[in-house]
Amino acid sequence: MSQPKNFDGAVIAAGVEIAYRRRPEGVTTGGLLVQAVTQALAQLDLRPSDIDGLGVASFTLAPDHAIDLAWRLGLSPRWSMDDCHGGASGINLLQHAVRAVQAGDASVVVLVAGDHFGPGDFATLTENYNTTTRQYLRPLNFSGPNAVFAMLTARHMQRHELCRSDYGAIAVAQRGWASDNPDAVYRTPLTLDDYLGAPTVAEPLCRFDCVPVVSGANALVVMAADHRRNPSKRIRVTALQAQHNPDHQQADGLTTGLARVAGQLWSTAGLGPGNVDVVSVYDDYPAMVLIQLADLGFAPSGDLRGLVERIASRKLAVNTSGGQLSAGQAGAAGGMHGLVEAIRQLRGEAGGRQIEGARSAVISGYGMVEYRYGMCANAVVMERI
């Protein structure tokens, strides 16, 4: 989907994360979302009455929606939106929020995403993810997306003549970044031997190929560029592209919709893959990291092993939070996790994992698995003002 080139008039003013945790007690999805919004407002010294837009992404907030959360927060939005695009939700919400601010439909929009999974919640979600899953996969006892992406990884491995160690190098590299992220769930050093010796989940995937399910939330604030509460450290969107359901599940899943829009993305941004300082790609599985990076142009010669080496050596700063593979996947928050990490990096607030002088970032989203692979892909380029 082509986007207008002018993204002026709206800035990203804040990004927060409620630390992800495995099986926390006394937690609710609504409570996590409220915490995230409250922290985002506090970061800018905003009151609920200052907010006139709210966007929400969550699998487990149901039966509540954005407007229910607005009531709970004491907000009276002129613009509101629920999003259900999974790993693509964060960027999807951002796209609509930026346009809403540019159009004057709202002046300060809070975007929030998150989930808390109680006992049995995640299994219920994966078995009833959509009609296709419920009708065609659940009767096969497929046990969630691991089996689907095991087949995709096997195809990817064969197509590009990769081995398990190549995927393991990504998991190890991201764990290294996570060691400097106090909010990451898994920070213990991971070696390639640890990866190769881990229990098999679904051949060729092992435990460390699969994102750990956690509870948590993220929030962003998008506001008019001339708003009186704008902070000194602001981020602007320079390009944003989305492509949903490009092949109608007829291809092999080894290319996402990003391949169709990457050229326009970089052209609009006035940058290229070699010019960005920070990269956050949706990492539900290591193979998807490589697929999205290749689609975005980070392996122009098709040399995926070379790409793996650049990730492992940190010549390419990919998923500097540790990504979902080490920080955890908090349901719909996973689609906003990479955005918040990029914002922290561009604002110089990433602590021990800070990329010196970071001024630009590219972030991708990927999600909504049908019966073979995901249907939604999007990406945004952001720069520090």
Score class of each variant (00 low, 15 high):
M1S: 15
K5V: 13
D8L: 05
G9F: 08
V11C: 11
A14T: 12
I18A: 12
A19H: 12
R21H: 10
R21A: 15
P24M: 10
E25C: 02
E25Y: 12
G26T: 07
V27Q: 05
G31H: 13
L33H: 05
L33C: 07
Q35N: 12
A36P: 13
A36M: 09
T38Y: 01
D45G: 13
D52S: 07
A57C: 10
T60V: 05
L61M: 08
P63W: 10
A66P: 08
I67P: 00
L69G: 05
L75S: 02
R78T: 12
R78V: 08
W79L: 09
M81H: 12
D83S: 14
C84T: 14
G87T: 05
S89G: 07
Q95W: 09
A100G: 15
A103L: 11
A103I: 00
G104Q: 07
D105K: 12
A106C: 03
V112Q: 01
A113R: 06
G114C: 00
F117H: 12
P119R: 11
D121L: 01
N128G: 03
N130L: 06
N130F: 00
T132L: 15
R134N: 08
L137C: 06
N141E: 13
S143K: 10
P145M: 01
A147Y: 11
V148A: 11
H156I: 07
R159K: 15
H160A: 08
Y167F: 15
G168Q: 01
A169M: 14
A171M: 01
N181K: 10
P182C: 02
D183R: 12
A184K: 11
V185Q: 14
V185N: 10
T191P: 03
L192G: 06
L192N: 08
D194I: 03
Y195I: 05
A202L: 02
C206H: 08
D209L: 12
V211I: 15
V211E: 03
V214L: 08
V221F: 04
V221I: 15
H227L: 07
R228M: 13
R229P: 03
N230K: 13
K233Q: 13
R236N: 11
V237A: 01
A239Q: 05
L240D: 03
A242H: 15
H244F: 15
Q249C: 03
Q250C: 09
Q250T: 12
A251P: 04
A251C: 08
L254H: 03
T255F: 09
Q264V: 06
L265V: 02
G270F: 09
V276C: 05
V278C: 06
P286N: 00
Q292R: 09
A294I: 00
L296I: 03
L296M: 07
A299D: 04
S301K: 11
R305P: 00
L307D: 04
L307T: 02
L307M: 05
A312Y: 04
R314Q: 15
K315Y: 04
N319T: 02
A327E: 14
G331N: 09
A332T: 09
A332V: 07
G334D: 04
H337I: 02
V340P: 07
E341A: 07
I343K: 02
L346R: 01
E356T: 11
A361V: 04
M368N: 13
E370N: 14
R372N: 07
Y373C: 09
A377F: 05
N378D: 14
A379V: 06
E383N: 05
R384Y: 05
